[in-house]
């Protein structure tokens, strides 16, 4: 610090605490609501301290959803979200580390073309080509399948570029030594490139897991059966429309379960997360 003034440090702490309070408030209220009974949630004003229904509410929605809104069990949705997030994270990393390896360590005709074709995909998020992509997926018969849910989201260039950048920093001497020792390209990939990329892979995994778990528009279109819903799209269907009352305590219990896994991943692997975030944006 340039000057030493205690009140400045104090004001800093105050502003930060205020900021954190504002950021945490919606989650706190959601958590409290998820532990109350239906009558307590709908009283005005709602109690501001946790109630006693935590186990019952969470157990209820996991087993058989809400009673007035959607009855799809949230347990199944959590599983779908998990599968989707894992497939997207692992799939993206797997296909892009291989293609980056090909682009960096081989010279072949069409190499530049392939590079540019992948590069262009950086520019277009799924949201802007949503219906034509939906049609392709429908034509291939992939509606309501995990493949349909994940494959279109795996087509992205970010990870390929990240690995390409990283491979460029691996010293040439390593590849030379491997060649002199008679190791083929795949041997070099398994024994040298893959172990060196561990941290990059882990950082990317954190980002992609969160990205996959939080998808909304695509699962909304591609899933029609209740047993294929992901938890993020399942919540909205629990909010009853029209005259029916919404069981907010169950909606909030579902919301808490929908946000906990990705938040836990980010908080527990904070270092990798920050690294992944900075690297994917380069």
């Amino acid at each position: 610090m340039v000057e030493h003034r205690p009140w400045r440090a104090l004001s800093g702490h105050l502003v930060l605490l205020l900021g954190i309070a504002v950021v945490v408030l919606p989650i706190y209220v959601a958590f409290v609501a998820s532990t109350l009974t239906f009558d307590q949630v709908t009283t005005v004003p709602m109690p501001m301290t946790p109630g006693t229904q935590l186990v019952k509410n969470y157990g209820d929605v996991i087993a058989h959803g809400s009673t007035l809104g959607s009855r799809a069990p949230v347990g199944r949705m959590l599983w779908n979200s998990f599968v989707m997030a894992m497939l997207i994270a692992v799939g993206k990393i797997a296909i892009s580390i291989l293609s980056a390896f090909a682009i960096v360590y081989f010279r072949f005709p069409l190499r530049r073309t392939c590079f540019w074709l992948i590069f262009v995909t950086l520019m277009l998020p799924v949201e802007v080509r949503i219906f034509p992509t939906y049609k392709v997926v429908a034509d291939l018969g992939l509606i309501d399948t995990y493949a349909g849910l994940t494959l279109p989201l795996i087509a992205s260039a970010t990870a390929t570029f990240l690995f390409r950048q990283f491979f460029m920093t691996i010293p040439d001497e390593l590849a030379e030594a491997a060649r002199i020792d008679g190791a083929g390209p795949m041997r070099f990939f398994w024994d040298v490139v893959l172990p060196l990329s561990r941290t990059s892979i882990a950082a990317l995994f954190v980002i992609m897991f969160v990205y996959g778990w939080n998808q909304y528009l695509w699962p909304l279109l591609v899933t029609t059966r209740e047993d294929m819903y992901t938890v993020v799209i399942g919540i909205k269907r629990m909010i009853a429309g029209g005259d029916q009352a919404t069981e907010w305590q169950l909606v909030m219990a579902t919301a808490m379960m929908a946000l906990l896994p990705p938040v836990a991943v980010v908080v527990l692997m904070q270092r990798l997360f920050v690294r992944g975030l900075v690297e994917t944006e380069k």
Binding site: V24, W213, Y216, A255, V266, Q270
Partner: peptide, 20 residues
């Protein structure tokens, strides 16, 4: 304490504020 909202899905964030 400030970085975790990044991990909350947009739709879930919306539901939290709809409730508030």
């Amino acid at each position: 304490l400030l970085i975790w909202p990044y991990a909350v899905a947009t739709a879930v964030a919306a539901i939290l504020f709809v409730f508030l």
